[in-house]
């Protein structure tokens, strides 16, 4: 068998393998993607919350995408405390101004960034939140100050539809 013929045969086999592999990949993808959130779950992305009954110094917890969202109407002391912290003292430096657009309202995903427990309100060394699972302390802006959690508690996308209603998501 000549050199040329061998090459052509190799090409044929390589092409067959390559085309076959593409097909296998294309077949596997639907089997993987089916486990991603489905269309009905994605459609539930936003929740509207009536906050007219929340007094200063109180927190309400609402469910959004199956997770708790803390909505806290902060006192002036808490705001002042949150805004006076220097960025360099923070493990995950973020300004309170960026976290709470309206300083009175802190809207935050109530999930500890360590391993997903729900922190307790008004506990811990920084008058904010304390996670009982592994001892992470958060301040009045929900920023991590002490403990194993790597980042601040997440701020979801939200907006005030009117003075009394917050739309999360």
């Amino acid at each position: 068998m000549s050199e040329k013929k061998t090459n052509r045969r190799d090409f044929l086999f390589t092409a067959t393998y390559a085309v076959g592999a593409v097909g296998v990949g294309a077949t596997i993808w639907p089997m993987i993607d089916q486990m991603n959130p489905d269309a009905s779950v994605k459609a539930l992305a936003s929740t509207e919350v009536d906050v007219s009954s929340v007094n200063v110094g109180k927190t309400i917890t609402v469910l959004w995408r199956g997770k708790p969202v803390f909505i806290r109407r902060r006192t002036q002391d808490e705001i002042a405390e949150a805004r006076s912290v220097k960025l360099e003292d923070l493990k995950h430096p973020e300004n309170d101004e960026d976290r709470a657009k309206d300083p009175e309202w802190l809207v935050m995903l109530g999930v500890c960034t360590h391993l997903g427990c729900v922190p307790l309100d008004q506990k811990g060394d920084y008058n904010g939140w304390f996670c009982p699972c592994h001892g992470s302390h958060y301040d009045t802006s929900g920023r991590i100050r002490k403990g194993p959690a790597p980042t601040n508690m997440e701020i979801p996308k939200y907006e005030f539809v009117n003075a009394n209603t917050i739309k999360i998501g």
Binding site: R9, L12, A15, T16, V19, G20, V22
Partner: peptide, 16 residues
């Protein structure tokens, strides 16, 4: 279309 292409390739591979 994909299956037909692959079938043709496999057919010639088989002949070889």
């Amino acid at each position: 279309v994909y299956l037909i292409i692959l079938t043709i390739l496999v057919y010639f591979s088989m002949k070889k």
